[in-house]
Design a protein around this nucleic acid. Structure first.
Length: 573
RNA sequence: GGGCCCGUGGCCUAGCCUGGAUACGGCACCGGCCUUCUAAGCCGGGGGUCGGGGGUUCAAAUCCCCCCGGGUCCGCCA
């Protein structure tokens, strides 16, 4: 609970000032390794040792004496141990205060005040030349989770899918569509993907055709710049929209919806790319080399020069990307991009260019690749595992599991299995911190035992069942938390009350995996509580009532938390 | 060759930014618990040179340097 922490910090800060006469800045509160040692601790004495020229142990004891005189809310005792100062909560009042807050706030528990800040978060942005694979999934899932978290803690968030319709790869699709029949009964993104693979194979066999790709790209760009709605423009639009239709469906199955799809070509059509090039030319940082103009970014520690346009005058991805970012950053307070680690250099160059143009720059979250045991994925070679097949397989296995348990009837099973599958897939990706490379293995991705989201959903289902039974029992109101509480309930309550702080940390540091790991922690703490503290079997009415409130609070935290990870709770499983 | 990222028990993973008390969990393994709130669970147990070596510090998984292994980038591709 933030109130407790702030009160503690204030008291410590005040006493430190009395001892050494000066402000030592922000006090850090930690949690001791075990409950016997206390609930909160500070290592301030170690930091003061040098200033005061006294051993930490002596300082801790002195501070401890002074802190004991203070009346800090919810704190019943202070102890000095081996240089640390440890604080002990009065769990009865802490539980009463904390639990009633969770229950009052309900689905708003953890929600932050409106910050009056507009965020544009760009994620997924996969090229529309095939279905999304699990690598794209990592991008989409991190992005969508982050959007939900930021929104919940008080930001106004708009998500962008930057549609890359101008690259070589899309020209290859258009080229392929001229030569191969598209399979109309296939899911559109998969059908486009096959065309793309076939076209690439053809290009490999007959490199002469490469000329044709260049011609298509030039023609498309010229048409756009002239503002024409020529056949080539229509062909590109058709191909892109067709693939996007399938991509949208996959995203929707993952509970992901973008607010805006921004087409790269729009920046060419509106002349904004030319404008950017012109403005970059005026910075005085442009040199001519091998017949093309290049931007020298050595002032930013980047050795590689940025090519502004091709020798044939057509634009490049990077310049279009700068135009997009210039526009985007002017429309928000904070811009966030989710990018694969392979984009690090490009992102640096975009950032440097934006600085040259006096623009704000985006915050970028980089994630490492998901590879297959046999090597890295490749859309071009058709070597990838699609999100569609992962979701489908997960659902198939979930149906089997749910049937085995026999807790739901035929109609419910499908819906329950869908939620479990979605949770398993999203959770297994979002729980890993993004800078960690992942090797995709089917057994790991779809393991419903123990690790992962089903455990959390299961804990939630248990809550639901208990509350259901409790309603039938019609337990009357009474005094709460007036008994000697078990460790498991103390630990659970403390964990539940960390939720708002966790969201703050996960949101501000742009790390959704922190929330994911916390959710598993809540489930474990709940299971331990459930296994050790009788609820409905308890004789004492006040204890039953109090524990039911804990169950209800757990249900709220799990629902709120999983919702922010884009995961639903089946309620029974 | 240079830049960036990763390297934590047999396997997966948190902690690293902001250094502190027994390194968080899970899988697998061993033992106990279902006529009692869903056993996708609970309780207990074994298992660790935090890739290696130096350094800074009263204190290093955490900060600095070097090395090893893996990934990635260094296109008039995106």
């Amino acid at each position: 609970m933030i109130e407790v922490e702030n009160a503690l910090k204030d008291s410590i800060s005040k006493k430190v000032k009395e001892i050494c006469g000066e402000d030592v800045g922000d006090i850090q509160l930690e949690e001791p390794p075990s409950m016997e040692l206390g609930d909160y601790s500070t290592n301030i004495s170690f930091r003061l040792a040098r200033v005061l020229k006294k051993p930490p142990k002596v300082i801790a004891e002195e501070l401890c004496r002074k802190l004991k005189e203070e009346n800090i809310p919810y704190i019943r005792d202070v102890k000095a141990v081996k240089g640390y100062i440890n604080f002990f909560l009065d769990y009865n009042s802490y539980a009463r205060g904390g639990i009633s807050r969770i229950l009052e706030e309900g689905e708003n528990f953890g929600r932050g005040r409106d910050r009056g800040k507009k965020v544009i978060l760009e994620h997924t942005s996969a090229n529309p030349n095939g279905p999304l694979h699990i690598g794209h999934g990592r991008n989409a899932i991190i992005g969508d989770s982050l959007k939900r978290i930021l929104e919940f803690i008080g930001y106004d968030v708009e998500t962008h899918y930057y549609v890359n319709d101008m690259g070589r790869q899309e020209a290859v699709v258009v080229f392929g569509l001229e030569r191969f029949e598209i399979e109309k009964d296939k899911k559109p993104d998969h059908a486009i993907g096959e065309i793309y693979i076939k076209a690439n194979k053809l290009l490999e066999e007959d490199p002469q055709l490469e000329e044709e790709i260049g011609r298509i790209m030039r023609e498309y760009e010229r048409s756009l710049e002239n503002g024409e709605d020529s056949p080539i423009v229509e062909r590109f639009q058709w191909a892109v929209n067709y693939a996007l239709e399938g991509i949208r469906e996959t995203l929707s199955n993952l509970n992901i919806k973008h607010d805006t799809f921004v087409w790269e070509s729009e920046y060419v059509r509106k002349g904004m790319v030319r404008e950017v090039i012109k403005r970059l030319m005026e910075t005085g940082k442009v040199v001519e080399e091998d017949g093309v103009y290049k931007l020298d970014l050595s002032d930013f520690g980047i050795e590689k020069k940025l090519v502004l346009t091709r020798a044939d005058g057509t634009t490049l991805y990077s310049t279009r990307d700068i135009a997009y970012h210039l526009d985007k950053m002017s429309r928000c307070d904070i811009g966030i991009d989710i990018l694969g680690a392979d984009h690090k250099l490009t992102a640096q160059m975009v950032e440097a260019s934006l600085k040259l143009l006096k623009s704000k720059t985006p915050k970028v979250i980089f994630y490492e690749f998901i590879s297959l045991p046999e090597g890295s994925m490749s859309t071009r070679r058709g070597r990838f595992v699609t999100l569609d097949e992962v979701l489908e397989e997960a659902e198939r296995r979930a149906i089997q599991e749910v049937k085995k348990r026999g807790v739901a009837d035929e109609e419910e099973i499908k819906e329950i299995a869908r939620k479990i599958a979605l949770g398993a897939v999203r959770y297994n990706i979002v729980r890993i911190s993004p800078e960690k490379p992942i090797v995709f293995k089917w057994e790991e991705a779809l393991d419903f035992e123990k690790v992962g989201c089903p455990v959390i959903q299961y804990a939630h289902a248990r809550c639901c069942r208990i509350l259901e039974h409790a309603r039938e029992m019609r337990i009357e109101d009474g005094e709460l938390f007036n008994y000697h509480m078990m460790d498991q309930e103390k630990i659970l309550i403390k964990t539940l009350l960390k939720f708002p702080r966790i969201l703050e940390i996960a949101g501000e540091s742009l790390k959704p995996h922190i929330l994911a790991n916390y959710m598993l922690d809540v489930a474990h703490k709940f299971n331990s509580f459930y296994g050790n503290c009788p609820i409905l079997r308890e004789k004492n009415k006040s204890i039953i009532l109090s524990r039911l409130k804990i169950v209800e609070s757990t249900k709220i935290v799990i629902e709120n938390g999983l919702k922010l990870l884009g995961i639903e709770c089946p309620g029974k499983m």
